[in-house]
Design a protein around this nucleic acid. Structure first.
Lengths: 208, 208
DNA sequence: TAGCTGAACAAGCAAGTGCTTGGTAGAGTG
DNA sequence: CACTCTACCAAGCACTTGCTTGTTCAGCTA
C-alpha cells in the first residue's frame, strides 16, 4: 500500500485568501462560469480574460474546482448570515417573509455570478466530494423559509390551505431564476421587481 | 478556390426521421443532456447508455448538436401548437391564462428532458448558427402570454397596477423551473402543483 | 443466390482539456 | 548584499473530446 495523500503543497504563495489579484481573478472566473457554464469554461478562457497564461492561474488556485468552490462558499455564507439576522429581528411572519424575499433579490446585485452558478451547476457539482456541503445548505435554506411560512399560518396571516413546501418552492424558483434575465442597466430595478413580486405573491393578480 | 461544400453524405441511412432505434437513442441522449448538461455528456456516455460504441451513433445522427436540435424542435413545435389552440378556444382571458399554465405543467410530463435542456442550455446553444431559432421561439411564447394578460387587464379581470412583462416572467420562471425538482414518482401530482400555483397566483397567500 | 440495407464494430486522428514543472523578473526586506 | 516573495511565463504531459474511416454481418428483397 502506497500512501495516496496528495501533499503537493510545494510552494503555497497567494493561495490562501488575501491577495487583490486573487479576488480579481475569482471575479473574472465567476462571470465566465455564470455565463458559459462551469464545464464550458476552460482554464485558458479564464487566463485569457485575465490577460495571463493558463499555467499562471495555478499560482493562485489549486484547481478549477477550487475556484468555484470559493465563489459559492462566499455567497452561501453571506446569504446564510443574512437569513439568520432577518429571522431574529423580524417582528412578525409577514415581515419576515417579505424581508427574506427582499434580501434574496438584493443578493442578485451582490452575487449575480455565484447565484447563477449555484442554480445551474449545483446539481453537477454535488457529485464531487468537495461539494458535499451543497445539499445541506439548500436544506437549511428551505427550513428557514418553511419556519416563517408555518408561523404565519399559525398566526392566521397566511392561508391555511397552502402546501407550504410547494409555496416555498414557487417563491424560491421565481426569485432565484431572476438572475437569468435581470439586467442591471435595464429599466427595472431590483427593488421594483421585489416589490411587484411580493405584491403578487401576497394578494394575487385577480381584481376584487 | 476549392469548393468547401460538405457533401459527406456518403451513406445516409436512418438519418432522416423514422427508425425506432433512432427515437430510442434520442430519448437516451435527452435524458443525459438534461441531467448532466449538454457539454458534460460525451458521445461515449450516450453510446454506453445505449449499449453500442460511440462511432455507431454517427450512423443515426450527423452530430451531437443534431441530437439536441431535434429534441428541442420536437418540444417547441408541440408547445407552440398547443398554445395556439388554447388562445383560439378559450372563452375568456382568465380561462386562457389558467389553461396556458396547466398546459405548460403537463408538458413537464411529456417533455421533461427537453424542458430541462431548453432551460439550462438555450443560452449556450444560441451562440451557434444552428440554434438561431431559439430566441425567436422564446419571443413568440412571451407574446402569446402577454396578449392574454393584456386582454385580461382590459376586461378588468386582472389588476391594473401589474407590470405585465414582469408578471409573465414570474409565471414562466415558476412553471418551467419545476422541472428541476419535480419527481414523477413523488407524492405531488403535476395537476395538484398546477392547481396550487394557479390558486396562489390568482388570489395570493395572504388570508382576507 | 446475388445484391442491397440498416446497424453495428474497431481503430484512430486532431484538437483541446486540466494541470505540472522549472524557471524568471522585479519588488521588497534583513 | 543576499534573501525571499509574488506574479507570471513557456513548455509540455497525460488524457478526453467529437468525429471519421473502413469493415463486418444478419436480414431482407429481386
Amino acid at each position: 500500500m502506497v500512501s495516496t495523500k496528495r501533499l503537493s503543497a510545494r510552494n503555497r504563495p497567494a493561495r490562501e485568501n488575501g491577495s487583490e489579484r486573487r479576488a480579481e481573478l475569482l471575479a473574472i472566473a465567476g462571470e465566465l462560469f455564470a455565463t458559459r457554464g462551469f464545464l464550458a469554461t476552460t482554464v485558458r478562457d479564464i487566463a485569457d480574460a485575465a490577460g495571463i497564461l493558463s499555467g499562471s492561474l495555478y499560482h493562485h488556485f489549486d484547481s478549477k474546482e477550487a475556484m468555484v468552490d470559493e465563489i459559492l462558499r462566499e455567497f452561501l455564507d453571506d446569504q446564510r448570515q443574512a437569513n439568520a439576522k432577518i429571522i431574529e429581528e423580524a417582528p412578525d411572519p409577514r415581515t419576515a417573509l417579505t424581508e427574506l424575499i427582499k434580501r434574496s433579490y438584493s443578493a442578485l446585485r451582490k452575487h449575480p455570478a455565484a447565484i447563477a452558478i449555484f442554480q445551474n451547476e449545483a446539481n453537477y457539482l454535488a457529485q464531487f466530494e468537495r461539494f458535499d456541503y451543497l445539499p445541506g445548505v439548500a436544506d437549511e435554506f428551505e427550513k428557514t423559509w418553511l419556519r416563517v411560512l408555518q408561523e404565519g399560518q399559525k398566526a392566521g396571516v397566511f392561508r391555511e390551505d397552502l402546501n407550504l413546501k410547494l409555496t416555498y418552492r414557487f417563491i424560491r424558483d421565481t426569485v432565484w431564476t431572476t438572475v437569468h434575465w435581470f439586467n442591471p442597466n435595464g429599466k427595472l430595478s431590483i427593488k421594483s421587481i421585489a416589490d411587484q413580486y411580493i405584491n403578487i405573491l401576497c394578494d394575487g393578480i385577480v381584481t376584487r
